[in-house]
């Protein structure tokens, strides 16, 4: 009996999906828009994340040491920084390396290089470049370094010449704020759009079923059970969802393809076309799952209204 009903419900859902083709198309289009918005959420999220990661990567604290600073005490400071929980990487740049990098950077500036050659000694000090795990943690690290400098016994000169965090502090603070609010704002906008389009989908399906309101009351009078009346509509809703999901996934191909190189150049290293292909499995499951769920739930709720009327 279960299988007979199952088969009949599916057949009936398919038939009415096919016969009410105009209503079906309208519902599918609206649902496609919804799924498109939800899918875009992924791409925007991925772009935002990789951009933010890159920006964060560029933030660091540099500790410059005096020229006569002893390498041993620099390395021991490096060790004490490395054990801090907030720190992700500490890079030591020796005096020679600093000079080399300087020459590289000014390789087409003969005047500067000549001036450098005039000098007998390497004028550059060694430095440490410190990266934190989170941008908000830089202040703590800077304070720690400041304490190290202040702790130098009286009479001796500190080996630390300067810490550039306090010059960069304002910029870093502002960047942290922008990053955070961009993330929050982006999420809010996307959630709002998703909610709005879900509401529109609900309404469209409800309108599609409204036309069947009288039929539902007839089915009840003929003695059909509520499940037997409702389930073909749920099947129909699921079909809307599947169709819309397929359209959405197909649409994403040309869209991401055309935007791919633009995003690569503009935002960061990420190419959304490659991202789409690379994460297709995940995106497919989410879009398809959302479509099916949205279709089923909105049909279920819409029919429930009319079933309540005895």
């Amino acid at each position: 009996m279960f299988w007979i009903n199952f088969k009949r419900i599916f057949r009936s859902g398919f038939i009415s999906f096919w016969r009410n083709s105009f209503v079906s198309i309208a519902a599918i289009l609206v649902m496609t828009v919804t799924l498109f918005v939800i899918g875009s959420l992924f791409f925007v999220g991925a772009l935002l994340n990789s951009t933010l990661d890159q920006l964060k990567d560029k933030v660091d604290i540099n500790v410059y040491f005096t020229i006569d600073a002893d390498e041993g005490s620099i390395l021991s400071l490096k060790k004490s920084i490395e054990v801090l929980p907030e720190v992700s990487v500490v890079e030591y740049i020796s005096r020679d390396e600093a000079l080399e990098r300087f020459r590289e950077r000014h390789s087409d500036d003969q005047l500067t290089l000549q001036a450098l050659d005039e000098l007998e000694d390497n004028p550059l000090g060694a430095s440490l470049s410190v990266r934190a795990k989170e941008t908000s943690q830089y202040e703590g690290i800077a304070n720690f370094l400041q304490e190290q400098e202040d702790a130098t016994p009286q009479g001796e000169t500190s080996i630390i010449e300067k810490i550039n965090f306090f010059q960069n502090k304002i910029a870093i603070d502002r960047l942290t704020k922008i990053i955070n609010s961009a993330e929050r704002f982006g999420m809010l906008v996307i959630i709002f759009l998703a909610l709005a389009s879900v509401a529109i989908t609900f309404n469209t399906v409800r309108l599609a079923i409204y036309t069947a309101k009288d039929e539902i009351s007839v089915m009840k009078l003929v003695g059909a059970s509520n499940t037997y009346i409702r389930n073909p509509f749920v099947v129909e809703g699921v079909l809307y969802g599947i169709a819309a999901a397929i359209i959405t996934l197909v649409l994403f191909y040309p869209v991401t393809l055309s935007l791919g190189s633009a995003t690569e150049g503009f935002f960061s290293d990420i190419n959304i076309f490659e991202y789409y292909l690379g994460n297709f499995g995940q995106i497919f499951v989410i879009i398809m799952g959302t479509g099916i769920l949205l279709g089923a739930v909105s049909s279920y709720l819409a029919v429930r209204r009319y079933l309540k009327i005895q």
Binding site: R8, S16, R19, N20, A212, E215, V218, M219, V222, G223, A224, S225, Y228
Partner: peptide, 16 residues
Amino acid sequence: LSHKTVYENIAFAMEA
């Protein structure tokens, strides 16, 4: 049931 054929209308009552 306006979206069902004569046959299906009667079959529906039997299915139910």
